[in-house]
């Protein structure tokens, strides 16, 4: 017998026992069975005696019938007492069977729960994740102007900057403007996509956005330069696939309505995280996978 068949047989037997011994209907049926057995035995004994009386030309009296019934019931009770060890063994076996079945059910539940925990942990990890968009380092501050070194990151290779540039901007509260594409939570949770941000301009509390410093543009294929790679610099994915995926992402950003209709994109908008900057400051701009951009300090000296 295969394990699954054995398991099914154990569960079926345990289910039947649980029904017979714990539910009102099952208990009623069990009691009815015992009563029917006793009634059959009484009937058989009375009938045998009645036939004997008939053969002898007599008639079975009510009193005699009553005593025969009492005797039969007494014999039944004695039989039950004699069979008590067997009955106890049967009850013990039933209990063991039901406990075994419940234990196996709990084991199955534990296995399913473990799988669910693995899935939820992955979802939480994906949603809690964040991607480095840009490192900012304030090189100098003089005459009301800040000199900033900006290092851009490619989501595919977060371990080192994809490009670095230095800019000068007037003011002290610096805004780092970027296009943000937040994908639907289902996409993020399953790890199919990551929210992306493309920084494109820096301005400050004194410099309007339109007069700020442009940070880059897209290439002829529509892919931001920050995401551009030479073939030899692309690891772990075919260069064609890498560019195709980037183009697809940019297309999604360009046609937000289509992306939203397809249930892929949640929002495309601009976001300019900002903070007061002084010489020596270093901090990082992140795109949170739960949505939006944040600034978290690297360290200050």
């Amino acid at each position: 017998m295969e394990a699954s068949n054995l398991r099914a047989a154990v569960d079926a037997a345990a289910g039947a026992l649980r029904f017979l011994l714990t539910t009102p209907l099952g208990l009623g049926l069990s009691a009815a069975g015992l009563v029917a057995y006793a009634a059959l035995r009484l009937w058989a004994a009375l009938r045998a005696r009645a036939l004997a009386c008939k053969a002898a030309g007599e008639r079975l009296g009510a009193a005699e019938g009553f005593f025969i019934a009492l005797k039969e019931l007494y014999a039944l009770a004695l039989g039950l007492v004699a069979a008590l060890p067997v009955v106890a063994a049967l009850l013990l076996s039933s209990l063991a069977l039901v406990t075994l079945s419940d234990g196996l059910a709990k084991f199955d539940e534990a296995r399913v729960n473990a799988e669910r925990i693995r899935e939820l942990s992955a979802v939480l990890r994906n949603l809690e994740g964040r991607r480095r968009v840009m490192d900012v380092r304030a090189l100098a501050a003089s005459g009301g102007e800040l000199t900033l070194e900006l290092s851009y990151y490619d989501p595919a290779r977060p371990d080192r900057p994809a490009a670095t540039e230095t800019i000068v901007i007037a003011g002290s509260d610096v805004y780092f403007d970027a296009i943000v594409c937040n994908f639907e939570y289902a996409e993020i949770a399953q790890g199919r996509r990551v929210n992306i941000a493309i920084p494109y301009r820096v301005f400050s509390e004194l410099v309007p956005q339109a007069e700020g410093v442009a940070l880059g543009a897209r290439g002829p294929d529509g892919v931001p330069y920050a995401f551009g790679r030479a073939d030899e610099d692309i690891y772990g994915i075919a260069p064609e696939a890498y560019r195709a995926r980037l183009t697809e992402l940019v297309a999604l950003m360009d046609d937000e309505a289509a992306g939203r209709r397809a249930g892929i994109v949640r929002s495309v908008y601009g976001s300019a995280p900002h903070r007061l900057v002084k010489a020596g400051d270093r901090f990082t701009i992140w795109v949170e996978q739960s949505g939006g951009l944040t600034i978290k300090e690297s360290f200050s000296f």
Binding site: S172, D173, Y175, I179, M253, D254, E256, A257, V268, Y269, G270, S271, A272, P273, H274, R275, L276, G292, L293, T294, I295, E297
Partner: peptide
């Protein structure tokens, strides 16, 4: 008032002239 508050930052969200 422009006083430093540890961990705080600002965020200006906006529409995109080029996109939508």
């Amino acid at each position: 008032a422009g006083e430093p508050v540890r961990g705080a930052f600002g965020n200006a969200v906006h529409d995109l002239a080029e996109l939508r």
